[in-house]
Computed example of a mutant assay.
Amino acid sequence: MSTRSQITTHILDLGSGRPAAGVSVRLEQQTDTGWRELASASTDTDGRILDAFPLKVDAGTYRLTFDTQGYFQQQEKRCFYPLVTIAFCLDEADVHYHVPLLLNQWGYSTYRGS
């Protein structure tokens, strides 16, 4: 049986061409009254979080918040976006969702991965 979370992420630092290790990431679910934190973790040496979020989640709206300022401060670099928040909708409850972040000091991009 797999212990991989239903929601996973990874970060590639495009400025260095390397995975972004040690980035704090928070996963939240939208509720009727706001956002509820489900888990938080930091990226591993390969820039990934594969097993720190819930194994199973319901369909709904979620968001990942990445502490990019903390990451760039460790490298003694400035950044324009101190936090990157990616909100996304899960339509199916038993499907794997991978949410990558492509990052540099001055911008970012994301997409639905596999």
Score class of each variant (00 low, 15 high):
Ser2Lys: 14
Ser2Asn: 14
Ser5Pro: 09
Thr8Gly: 08
His10Tyr: 13
Ile11Lys: 11
Leu12Asn: 09
Leu14Asp: 09
Ser16Asn: 08
Ser16Gly: 09
Gly17Thr: 08
Arg18Cys: 08
Ala20Gln: 04
Ala21Asp: 06
Gly22Leu: 12
Ser24Met: 11
Ser24Trp: 08
Val25Phe: 11
Leu27Ser: 05
Leu27Glu: 02
Leu27Arg: 04
Glu28Tyr: 00
Glu28Asn: 04
Gln30Ile: 00
Asp32Met: 08
Thr33Ala: 05
Ala39Val: 07
Ser40Ile: 01
Ser42Phe: 01
Asp44Trp: 08
Ile49Met: 02
Asp51Cys: 06
Val57Asp: 01
Val57Trp: 01
Asp58Pro: 00
Ala59His: 00
Gly60Met: 03
Thr61Gln: 05
Arg63Tyr: 01
Leu64Gly: 05
Phe66Met: 04
Gln74Phe: 04
Gln74Glu: 12
Gln75Tyr: 10
Leu83Gly: 03
Thr85Trp: 02
Ile86Glu: 04
Leu90Ser: 09
Asp91Val: 10
Ala93Tyr: 08
Val95Pro: 00
Val95Gly: 00
His98Ala: 07
Val99Glu: 09
Pro100Cys: 11
Pro100Ser: 11
Leu102Asp: 10
Leu102Glu: 12
Asn104Phe: 03
Gln105Asn: 14
Gly107Asp: 12
Gly107Lys: 07
Tyr108Met: 12
Ser109Asp: 11
Thr110Gly: 14
Thr110Lys: 09
Thr110Asp: 11
Arg112Val: 13
Ser114Pro: 14
